[in-house]
Design a protein around this nucleic acid. Structure first.
Length: 465
DNA sequence: AAAACGGGGCC
DNA sequence: GGCCCAGTTTT
């Protein structure tokens, strides 16, 4: 019934299609006046690993393509290659119809297989892979130390942001033994500005473990890697696959997006993580597992982007159910994030007669753990709009308030800091380190603390690390 | 299961 | 201003 109507519409579109340039979702919806949910569930056509599309009709055919024109409708060209698999995925056509449809316009007729072809992705990767400083040459395995260092830095961090830090670290500590021999403070200072400072502390801990207890060799399995500080399920899989070619999935945000679209996974993140991981793992080839992991990431970074993905260039376009339904850009769905409260506090920039600045070390655990800061009152959401900042001062002095505020956004709250400055002729007895202005660039100062110092000193002579 | 944990780029 | 990013650890 619906199906008959559907075919009729398709034929109609085929006949008049040459003059139209329909966008992908419109075209498909038009075929049968079908909303996305009137098309069969993705699991039916694209189960993990196999499951060819069901023959959706055994009735007589309507002769699609018998009245073909020489070129497919413009709207179809815009989809890239539309083949048998895609048409069957709609399930509004019988095998016979869709195959004739494909042949009539010299489209590829793909028999039997509905799922994504790993070989197609790897072939795409061989041509389009990104050149990144931590990657080995094509066909080579990367150094496990390089892979590990880059993967820790890349946690929740963009490739662009990591690039400079990775080069600095590798240049300064070329081996895991040398990193292990470094002081934690030096590592934190080199990490300053990259964020998530627990990563730097775990990096140092793991370097010491690998250098001290494992003869400088990283575990070669995901299970072994998982036991090291700072290595979770993603990073364990990524290192095992990329450095050792163990058939492990590396499910990062790129993979989650690609797989959610490919299999039309509607469950919002993070609830969908288990399913996405299982679907990804089911695709991992026995050979070239590392290339597969990186290929999925490159696909997510270059083609299957969060916004405006370039589906016609995608090696998996035929199999992608999200694309068939015209809902690629709506995936993956994500649970709403709670809004961030505003917190306030006061900072005190102290300068001695020689221009040195007083810095104190934050607690090892918690926010910005182990990093340096000027004396800083507690910050909280409950600070009244008017309060006496002087009650927060570390010692009595002539505190001059700087005009304006320092604002900073953290993941889970927003911060407004008032800044007071005191220039002293004599250093008070107080815990902390006096750092010359020219040495601030090398200090373990997170970005928000650099903002405070710039605001307080009225100078930017020290650049963020 | 949910919260904590940074920062910068891009639209 | 909102969204996103080669996630992990703690509660």
């Amino acid at each position: 019934m619906l199906e008959k109507k559907c075919r009729a519409r398709l034929r109609l579109e085929c006949q008049r299609g040459a003059g139209r340039a329909l966008a992908q979702p419109d075209w498909y919806r038009k075929i049968g006046d079908l909303g996305p949910d009137n098309i069969a569930p993705a699991q039916d056509q694209c189960g993990i690993g196999e499951a060819p599309a069901r023959d959706c009709s055994s009735g007589q055919h309507t002769g699609i393509g018998s009245d073909r024109s020489t070129a497919p409708p413009a709207g179809i060209n815009r989809l890239g290659r539309v083949g048998y698999a895609t048409l069957c995925a709609l399930r509004s056509l019988s095998h016979g119809d869709s195959e004739r449809f494909a042949k009539s316009w010299n489209m590829p007729v793909l028999r039997g297989r509905q799922g994504p072809r790993v070989e197609a992705l790897l072939a795409w990767y061989d041509v389009h892979r990104r050149v990144l400083p931590w990657r080995a040459q094509a066909g080579m395995r990367a150094d496990p130390y390089h892979v590990w260092l880059s993967e820790i830095m890349l946690q929740q961090t963009t490739v662009q942001a990591v690039d400079r830090y990775y080069r600095t670290f590798l240049s300064r500590w070329p081996t895991v033994e040398q990193l292990a021999a470094a002081s934690l403070d030096d590592v934190l200072a080199a990490w300053a500005g990259l964020g998530y400072y627990a990563r730097a502390r775990n990096l140092h801990r793991t370097a010491k473990i690998v250098a001290g207890q494992m003869a400088g060799r990283f575990p070669e399995t995901a299970a072994g890697l998982r036991a090291l500080p700072g290595i979770g399920p993603y990073t364990a899989g990524a290192i095992a696959a990329i450095a050792f070619d163990e058939p492990q999935a590396a499910v990062d945000a790129n993979a989650e997006r690609v797989i959610a679209r490919l299999f039309y996974v509607k469950t919002p993140l993070p609830a969908a993580k288990a399913e996405l991981r299982a679907r990804t793992q089911a695709l991992v080839p026995q050979r070239r597992a590392g290339d597969f992991a990186q290929a999925v990431m490159d696909l997510g970074a270059l083609i299957c982007t969060p916004k405006a993905p370039q589906c016609p260039r995608c090696p998996w376009q035929e199999a992608c159910i999200g694309r068939v339904r015209g809902l690629v850009e709506t995936l993956p769905r994500k649970a709403p994030k709670p809004d961030r409260p505003l917190k306030r506090g006061v900072a005190f920039v102290v300068v001695d007669a020689k221009g040195a600045v007083l810095l104190q070390r934050r607690a090892e655990k918690g926010l910005l753990g182990g990093m340096m800061q000027p004396p800083l009152g507690p910050w909280g959401a409950d600070f009244p709009a008017e309060y006496d900042a002087m009650t927060q001062a570390p010692f009595a002095a002539t505190w001059i308030k700087r005009p304006g505020l320092v604002r900073h956004q953290f993941t889970h709250f927003e911060l407004e800091i008032e800044v007071y400055v005191a220039k002293l002729t004599r250093r008070p007895r107080i815990q902390g380190r006096w750092v010359q202005a020219h040495a601030l660039a090398e200090a373990a100062l997170p970005t928000v603390m650099r903002k405070i110092l710039v605001h307080g000193l009225g100078t930017t002579t020290f650049a963020p690390a």
